[in-house]
Design a protein around this nucleic acid. Structure first.
Length: 389
DNA sequence: TCTGGGGTCCTAGGACCC
DNA sequence: TCTGGGGTCCTAGGACCC
């Protein structure tokens, strides 16, 4: 989707090998998404940008633009709403539609899907694939298969499973990732058909997930659409250009990241009940700690205070550290949050201060106001090896 | 040429309560 | 002198998805 949005905004990019990625001079930048033309050269999502450049020397590199994708996403879901009121987005570019009772269904599901697809293309310039099925899991499998078809649409019924889905490798199963796929293969289970035919006791080590996998592989999917729900957590993380050796050196980054999270919370009108801290060490091992906030808040210094205490509880093996992330969890709408029982006068004034900061930033940009002791924003950081003055 | 950033959900163990 | 059973909530880690 990111590549499609970039090409829709800048027609000169259309038809070219294109990659959405961070700064190519940063060795840690990776490919967020690759256009089909770039994929033809072997370029893949999550590949280091330098690798992509090696495989496809002329590839165009476009920086990510979240606001742009959000704009297209809103338009996409608006179009879908015109077909059915029951639309459940699951990500920025994917969602479930309940088409039962939809007037267009009289002409048949395939006709309706073609109509949806054409309308989306006309009104958003985005090409979508559509999977049609009785339940959401089957629909997801159908949509994955539809991507490989010129018409971009696939109807998958339970009785089609054996022919269309059973021959597929277990990792194509929505919900089976690399870890589970490896375990299954060690048990001699290689295809989705193998799961369907497996003795249920063989899948016992996977618990409820194992039984669910088997039922879905058999085409039994009567699950309801996912419920509509607000966000559960909100986070920001940063991978450093160079690993960081000590908690003290992490401090300016912690301040900056907590500030970002607080800012996003306020923009979303949310407050958090707790804070989580994540460190990733050189061996790619993650360490997480979490703890509650005194009161639900979006104030950066409150997030930071908890995050600092969590940092102090991290083991020494978390260093040298390559990544720091801060999560605000237990989100609730700021408007519906009960006022503090004994509001501190300073709390009220700090909230007013932060609202002012948010307004200034909305007008002059995130970097217009910076907390004391925060790491400088990316754009103004010294290049590696530059003068220390 | 090592491996981003944003999320969700599940599990196991421990604390704590009745 | 030892010690049941059920339940909830919290935490850290892990798997998975886009």
């Amino acid at each position: 989707m990111f590549a499609s949005c970039a090409a829709a905004e800048d027609p000169s990019l259309r038809g070219l090998p294109l990659v959405v990625a961070g700064d190519p001079s940063d060795r840690r930048s990776i490919v967020l998404t690759a256009s089909y033309e770039a994929r033809a050269y072997g370029v893949r999502t999550a590949m280091p940008v330098r690798e992509a450049l090696r495989l496809c020397p002329g590839v165009r590199i476009v920086p990510p633009d979240r606001r742009l994708y959000e704009r297209y996403s809103r338009r996409l879901f608006e179009v879908l709403q015109d077909f059915t009121p029951v639309v459940r987005p699951v990500s920025i570019d994917e969602g479930y539609l309940d088409l039962a009772g939809c007037p267009g269904l009289a002409a048949g599901p395939l006709r309706l899907a073609a109509e949806i697809r054409r309308t989306v293309l006309e009104r958003t310039a985005l090409v979508v694939s559509i999977g049609l099925a009785e339940g959401p899991w089957l629909a997801k499998m159908a949509a994955d298969l539809a991507k490989k078809r010129a018409e971009g649409i696939l109807l998958l019924r339970a009785e089609d499973m054996q022919e269309m889905v059973w021959p597929l490798a277990v990792e194509t199963f929505h919900g089976i990732g690399p870890k589970t796929a490896t375990k299954l293969r060690l048990m001699g289970i290689r295809t989705i058909g193998d799961i369907a035919r497996a003795d249920p006791t063989l899948l016992a080590p996977f618990g409820v997930h194992g039984q669910r996998m088997r039922r879905l592989a058999l085409g039994e999917d009567h699950g309801p659409l996912p419920e509509e729900s607000g966000p559960v957590s909100l986070s920001h993380e940063e991978t450093f250009a160079r690993d960081i050796e000590s908690p003290a050196d992490l401090h300016p980054i912690l301040v900056a990241v907590c500030d970002r999270v607080g800012e996003r919370l306020r923009r979303e009108g949310q407050v958090a009940k707790g804070v989580g801290l994540r460190l990733r060490n050189r061996e790619f091992r993650d360490f997480t700690r979490q703890g509650p906030l005194r009161v639900p808040t979006a104030r950066a210094e409150d997030l930071r205070q908890v995050a600092q205490a969590l940092l102090a509880r991290m083991p020494g093996t978390a260093f040298p550290c390559r990544l720091l992330g801060v999560t605000a969890y237990g989100l609730q709408s700021a408007a519906s949050t009960a006022p503090e029982l004994f509001p501190d006068d300073t709390d009220t004034r700090r909230d007013q201060l932060w609202q002012a900061v948010t307004s200034v930033r909305a007008r002059y940009g995130q970097d217009a106001v910076r907390p004391l002791g925060a790491q400088a924003p990316r754009s103004s950081r010294r290049p590696p090896g530059g003068s220390s003055r």
